[in-house]
Design a protein around this nucleic acid. Structure first.
Length: 314
RNA sequence: CGCGGGAUAGAGCAGCCUGGUAGCUCAUCAGGCCCAUAACCUGGGGGUCGGUGGUUCAAAUCCAUCUCCCGCAA
């Protein structure tokens, strides 16, 4: 049989955060028959311990779509099986999907991955692409197999990374590209019109999850790599350095000059901003956030601190 | 009761411990200097000091309580 329209296939969508919600909502708006959402559990967010539900769950509730939030999909997937999907579409679900689940839908499980595979397999492709200074990345529609991001590739969309992009802005672009990709390809995929191609294992690179250590920035690096790290971590979680023992987040920064006039980390000027020495030049900090304070532009920060010039970031 | 920081002019902060009619930097307005300027000089406007009670002759400051914001941990 052949799927003639978007109402026919029974689709289960798996995804948790905002970027995934963009795709999820896009599919709903386009008229796909999504019979259920699988997302991670509600998590206590913030200081009050109030439970916050995933972005995708909010969309599902607005559309009256059943939601399944297994603690461990590895052991708990009967609900998904009961939905009897023809296909499972995943983006940024947040858990490893076991083979037993991959075997449920007769047309398999497909995933939208935020990189141009085989580059940047893994948990944080968007952040890592910025951190390593890439100027182009993208989204890949791929088959899910029992090995992380290793399945056949069916289609891709390239996304340009502009110098002013950070993780947040790029994630939004990737989310929209992913939406476009799934909308144009899903029926073709189900009808067997996308042959796909295997990934070249020799070109594989990995995008490791962002760990707390990754969030600590160092001025002992070239200006451009410093700026790329800041971009890759912004707006959340935000890279930081220490100023007199306190956490000082740097949410945006820009290369300023190639002068070297002090040891890395030294604030060489606090006129109209914060200018800090890096290994091979000076970086200008734009948005910053002191521990316990709101984010503010560097100029405002300077107004409230005396004798900032000459201090050294750790 | 998870730990901690904070709320003072449009913005960022100081003052609070040791109560006595509010100060700094920036922005803004006016004037000046200058070939010129985002630079510099002079002067001005702008604040019920988060809310509510209490102590006191007197509260930004001390006590109680409430609201909101943020960092960490999850």
């Amino acid at each position: 049989m052949k799927f003639e329209n978007r109402q026919q296939p029974r689709i289960v969508y798996m995804g948790t955060p905002e970027i995934s919600a963009i795709v999820f909502k896009g599919m709903l708006d386009a008229g796909f028959n999504i019979v259920g959402l699988v997302c991670n559990e509600d998590r206590p967010i913030g200081r009050k311990g109030a439970l916050e539900c995933p972005a995708t769950k909010k969309i599902a509730m607005e559309h009256g779509i059943p939601v399944f939030q297994p603690h461990r999909i590895r052991n708990d997937y009967q609900t998904l099986a009961d939905w009897n999907p023809d296909v499972v579409v995943t983006m940024a679900y947040g858990q490893i999907v076991p083979q037993a689940v991959l075997d449920i839908p007769r047309f398999g499980c497909i995933n939208l991955h935020g990189s141009l595979l085989p580059k940047l397999r893994g948990a944080a492709p968007i952040q890592r692409s910025i951190m390593q200074g890439d100027t182009v990345t993208g989204v890949t529609l791929m088959e899910m197999v029992d090995k992380m991001d290793a399945g056949r590739m069916y289609d891709k969309i390239e996304v340009e990374i502009l110098p002013e992009d950070n993780y947040s802005s790029l994630a939004e672009k990737i989310g929209n590209a992913a939406k476009e990709l799934i909308l144009r390809d899903l029926l073709s995929y189900l009808n067997g019109e996308l042959p796909g191609e295997a990934q070249n294992e020799e070109e594989v690179t990995f995008a490791a999850k962002i760990s707390p250590e990754d969030e600590k920035l160092s001025f002992h690096s070239p200006v451009q790599s410093f700026v790329n790290m800041v971009r890759g971590l912004s707006l959340t979680p935000g890279g930081y350095v220490l100023l007199e023992g306190k956490k000082f987040k740097i949410l945006s920064a820009k290369a300023h000059s190639d002068e070297v006039v002090a040891v890395p980390g030294t604030i060489v000027s606090d006129k109209k901003g914060i200018f800090v020495q890096c290994e091979d030049g000076i970086v200008s900090l734009h948005m910053v956030q002191m521990e316990g304070k709101k984010p503010m532009d560097a100029k405002s920060f300077v107004n409230g601190v005396r004798d900032l010039k000459g201090k050294v970031f750790e």
